[in-house]
Design a protein around this nucleic acid. Structure first.
Lengths: 350, 350
DNA sequence: ATGAAAGCGCTAACAA
DNA sequence: TTGTTAGCGCTTTCAT
C-alpha cells in the first residue's frame, strides 16, 4: 500500500508539486504567485500537478518568511447585535478592495473573552487589528496598539493612545435624541444607559448635558441598562416602579429600546401615545416597518470601511501619528416617538 | 541609536527572549509551553524577559512544525441574520471547551464570496471547517471535505458526501408550520420560499407535501422569496397581487416573515386578524415581545456545539465515516397566527 | 536541566 | 528560465 495515500490525507506541499511536475520548489512558488518569468511549458506542468494533488499554499509558511500576513483581524464585541452585521460588511468590502483577508473573533460582551479573542488574533501575527465596540480597558488597548496597528471602532479613545479610532459623536447623538423629545413637548425624559458598553458613557453624558441645557435638570432620571434587550427590559421595569413616570425614554441602543418597549407594552402603555421611546444605532431592527423605532443613525458600513482604510495607512503607508475620526450621527424619526400625553395633573386640578 | 529599537516595532521572537534571559531557544520554548522540567531560576528569567519584551509566540511558526493549528474555521453565510449569532455562540463555547480557537469569515450570501471565505480559512490550514448555512454546491463541499474535516450546518448533505452535517429536519418543521395553520382553520396557506438558501428546498418540499396530505393541494401557492427581509417583502407583494388572498403565510425564515408582515401591514391587513404569518428559526427577533412572531424553533446553540463536537471526533479521535445528525424542530406559537377571518364569500352570497 | 541541530512549508536572493 | 541555498520562528529529537 502506498504510504502517502494511506496516511490520512497529509496535505500536499510545494515539494510534492515540484516532484510531480519535475521542477524545483522555487519554480512552483513562482507559478503559484503568478510571476511572469516562467516558461509556458513549466507553468502548465506545475498547474496540472497542483490541481491533481489539490495543492493549496500554506499561508502560514508564506507569512513566516514574508513577515506579514495580509490579514486584518477583527474582534467584534457582540455578534448578536445586528449593528455589527453592517460594520462587518463594511470592513469586508474595504479589506477585499485593499487586498486583505479578514478574520473575526468575538468577545460576547465579556472583557475576559475579548482579551482571549484579541490574543488569538495577535498570535496569528495579523497585520492589523480592528476592535469593534470593545469593552476592555483603554490601557490594554494602548498596550496592544504599541505592538500592532489598531483601530478602535465605536469607542472614543484618548488622544494619548497609540490606537486610531473611528467613532460617531455619541454625545451629540444623545443630545439629538433628547432635543427631539423636547421638541415634541416632552420634559420628563429618562435614559436607560448602556452600562460599560462602547460609547455608553458618552451617551450618558450627552443626555445629562442636554437635559441641563434645556433646563430640565430636575427631570433627569437615569437608570442602568445595557446594550441588550433584556437589559432594556430591566431598565424599563425600574422606570415603571418610579413616579412620576417619564413621558419619553432615550435607550442606550436599539436592542435596549426594544426591551424597554416590551416592558412598557406589557404594562399596558401605548407607544408613543403614553410614552415615547428612542433608540441608538438605527439598526436593521429599527428599520423593520413593524418595529419602526425612532433612532439615532450612525453610518456603520462607512465606519467599517474607514477603519480598514486607517489600518491600511499605517501598515502600507507608514503613518504613525494616531488619527481619531469622528463622524456625525443623525436623527431618524419613525413611529415610536410622538407628543406626550395630556398631563394627568391637569385633570386632578380641574 | 539602537537599531532594534528604532526599527518600527519588529516583533520579538523566541530568540530575543532567549538572548535576554541568557538561555537557549529550546528552554524558552519549554517555559512558554508550560513544561515541567525547567528549573525555577530559568523559568523566572525567561518569563521576566518575555514580559519585558512583550513577547507573543508566533502561532504560525508553531503550527508549521506541529502540522496542526488548533483552529476551527467557520464560514458564516450571513452575519446579518440574528440566527447565526446563536450558532456562533454555541460554536465558540464548545470550541473553547475542547481547546480550539475559532476564526470566522463570512460569505454575505454570495456563492463566490463564500468560496473565497472558505479558501482563506483553508490556506491557514485550519484543523477543521464548519460551514454555517452555505450556499455553495454540494460538489464543492464534498471536494473540500476530502482534504479537511468539514461539518455542514443547517444544510442537508447527501449521505455520499465526505462531509458531516448537523441539521434540523426542515421538512418536518415546514409541515409543523402548515399543520399549525390548518389546525387554526386555515386552508389558503401560502409559502414564501427561501430561494437557494440552506434548507430552503426542504422547507418548500415539506410545505407542498403537507398541503397535499391535508387535501389542500388546490390551495398551494408558492412564491419565491429568500432569507432576508426585503425578499420577504417582495414575496408578500406578489401574494397581494393574486386572488384570492391567502389567509396564512408560511415564510422561509423569520427575516422573511418580518418583511412579509411589513408588506401586509402596509396593505392595511391586520395580523393575525386578516392574515396569519409564521416564520422559521425562532430567532431573537421573533422572540421580541413587540414582534412576537410564531416560528419554528431549531436549537441553534446546541447545533453549533454539535458541529464542533463532530469536528473534534474527526480531528482528534480519528473518526472517518461521515455522520449526519438531524435534530427535531419545534413549534413556538406567538401572536402572529390565529384563526382565519370570516370568509368574505359568505357575505357576497347572502 | 539545558543546549545544539534539524526541519516544518515557503519565499527570496543568488547562481547557473 | 531554472535550481540552489538560506532562513522566517518555532518545536522536537538527541546529546550533554
Amino acid at each position: 500500500m502506498n504510504p502517502t495515500e494511506s496516511s490520512p490525507r497529509r496535505r500536499p506541499t510545494i515539494r510534492d508539486v515540484a516532484r510531480k511536475a519535475g521542477v524545483s520548489k522555487s519554480l512552483v512558488s513562482m507559478v503559484i504567485r503568478g510571476e511572469e518569468k516562467v516558461s509556458a511549458r513549466s507553468r502548465e506542468a506545475v498547474l496540472r500537478a497542483a490541481a491533481e494533488l489539490g495543492y493549496r499554499p500554506n499561508l502560514m509558511a508564506r507569512s513566516l518568511v514574508q513577515r506579514r500576513t495580509k490579514i486584518v483581524g477583527v474582534m467584534v464585541s457582540d455578534l448578536r447585535n445586528p449593528f455589527f452585521g453592517d460594520v462587518v460588511s463594511g470592513i469586508e468590502q474595504q479589506a477585499s478592495e485593499l487586498g486583505y483577508k479578514v478574520l473575526f473573533t468575538t468577545g460576547d460582551r465579556q472583557q475576559e473573552r475579548e482579551t482571549e479573542a484579541i490574543e488569538n488574533l495577535l498570535e496569528l501575527w495579523v497585520d492589523g487589528l480592528i476592535l469593534a465596540g470593545p469593552r476592555i480597558d483603554q490601557d490594554s488597548i494602548g498596550r496592544i496598539g504599541r505592538s500592532v496597528p489598531v483601530v478602535v471602532l465605536h469607542r472614543p479613545t484618548p488622544t494619548t493612545s497609540s490606537a486610531d479610532s473611528v467613532t460617531n459623536d455619541d454625545r451629540a447623538g444623545a443630545e439629538m435624541a433628547v432635543n427631539h423629545c423636547h421638541a415634541l413637548g416632552h420634559a420628563r425624559i429618562a435614559h436607560i444607559d448602556g452600562g460599560t458598553g462602547a460609547g455608553a458613557q458618552e451617551r450618558r453624558e450627552g443626555y445629562e448635558h442636554s437635559m441641563r441645557r434645556l433646563g430640565l435638570v430636575e427631570h433627569i432620571v437615569l437608570v442602568s441598562g445595557g446594550y441588550t434587550e433584556p437589559r432594556g427590559y430591566q431598565g424599563a421595569q425600574e422606570l415603571l416602579s418610579k413616579r412620576p413616570l417619564p413621558t419619553a425614554v432615550f435607550a442606550a441602543n436599539d436592542l435596549c429600546a426594544m426591551g424597554a418597549i416590551n416592558a412598557f407594552e406589557e404594562a399596558g402603555l401605548g407607544i408613543p401615545s403614553d410614552i415615547s421611546v428612542i433608540g441608538y444605532d438605527n439598526t436593521s431592527l429599527a428599520a423593520l416597518r413593524h418595529v419602526s423605532l425612532t433612532s439615532i443613525h450612525q453610518p456603520s458600513i462607512e465606519m467599517g470601511q474607514m477603519a480598514v482604510e486607517r489600518l491600511f495607512q499605517r501598515i502600507d503607508k507608514g503613518r504613525t501619528e494616531p488619527t481619531h475620526e469622528v463622524v456625525a450621527p443623525s436623527l431618524v424619526v419613525r413611529n415610536t416617538t410622538g407628543p406626550p400625553p395630556a398631563e394627568p395633573e391637569l385633570e386632578v386640578r380641574r
